[in-house]
């Protein structure tokens, strides 16, 4: 629960990418992705160059692709959309493998797929090489409002506590023959979620009191190493 805990996507390492200041990494990610998004969709050499730059950074970070690739499944829902694009878009038709598809739709679908994949891999690289505490400090340095950084800090700090609590509730439900996914059992699930809300809120109140008793005045003290 304390500082220095890696989060689920973090990959421990000591590469230059790991050591780079978090605020620079966030700025680099946003800048890079803006360039990728603004790239004309048929400028394939440019897109290939951007992908190569990204792969270079991944190689530099020494996070194995074997680690990153399985974690790219978050992309799947919109891959479906990208695949549908050639079929639902307008414009001149063209033949691909004997199927008539829309040419602009095909171009857009491919561009969407490429840009989206670059985006997911770039975000994963940031997540894999940055400790949450460093990220928070980086956001602070980027003049993110202090309150937002604090809320994020609390969220990250208690993420495992609350999700583990939910996990135990779901285990308890399942062991009593309840399937939380089935709409038939939604009333039971909703009661658990209500209980989880009350527990989370009350935990927040207790944390607040504990902080007040330790001299909290609206700002968190800087502790630990400053990077």
């Amino acid at each position: 629960m304390g500082a220095g805990h890696g989060h689920r996507l973090h990959f421990h390492g000591h590469s230059p990418v790991h050591r780079a200041p978090a605020h620079l990494k966030v700025l680099a990610l946003v800048g890079f992705m803006l360039v990728v998004v603004a790239t004309p969709r048929q400028a394939y050499p440019l897109l290939a160059l951007e992908a190569a730059v990204l792969l270079g950074v991944v190689a530099l970070s020494r996070v194995p692709l074997r680690y990153l690739l399985p974690r790219m499944v978050v992309e799947v829902p919109f891959v479906v959309f990208a695949v549908l694009m050639p079929f639902i878009a307008h414009g001149p038709r063209t033949e691909v493998l004997g199927v008539s598809v829309s040419e602009p739709g095909l171009v857009a679908g491919v561009a969407l797929l490429v840009k989206g994949t670059i985006g997911v891999l770039a975000s994963l690289t940031l997540a894999a090489t940055t400790e949450p505490q460093d990220l928070l400090r980086g956001l602070q340095r980027l003049r993110t409002p202090d309150l937002v950084v604090q809320i994020m800090g609390f969220m990250i700090r208690y993420l495992d506590v609350v999700t583990a609590e939910l996990g135990r509730m779901l285990t308890a439900l399942r062991s009593r023959g309840c399937d939380p996914r089935s709409p038939r059992h939604w009333p039971v699930l909703a009661r658990s979620l209500g209980a989880l809300f009350i527990r989370s809120y009350e935990r927040g109140e207790r944390v607040h009191l504990a902080m007040l008793s330790r001299g909290y005045d609206g700002r968190l003290p800087q502790t630990g190493e400053t990077r």
């Binding site: 309150l147 809320i151 800090g153 609350v162 939910l166 996914r181 989370s200 607040h208």
Partner: peptide
């Protein structure tokens, strides 16, 4: 009021946890 940071942080965690449950 001044409970904003911890209370909103924990509510954010709750929202995240609630979003984790997928329904077919």
């Amino acid at each position: 009021d001044d409970r904003t940071a911890p209370a909103a942080g924990l509510v954010a965690t709750f929202v995240f946890a609630a979003q984790m449950i997928n329904f077919p």
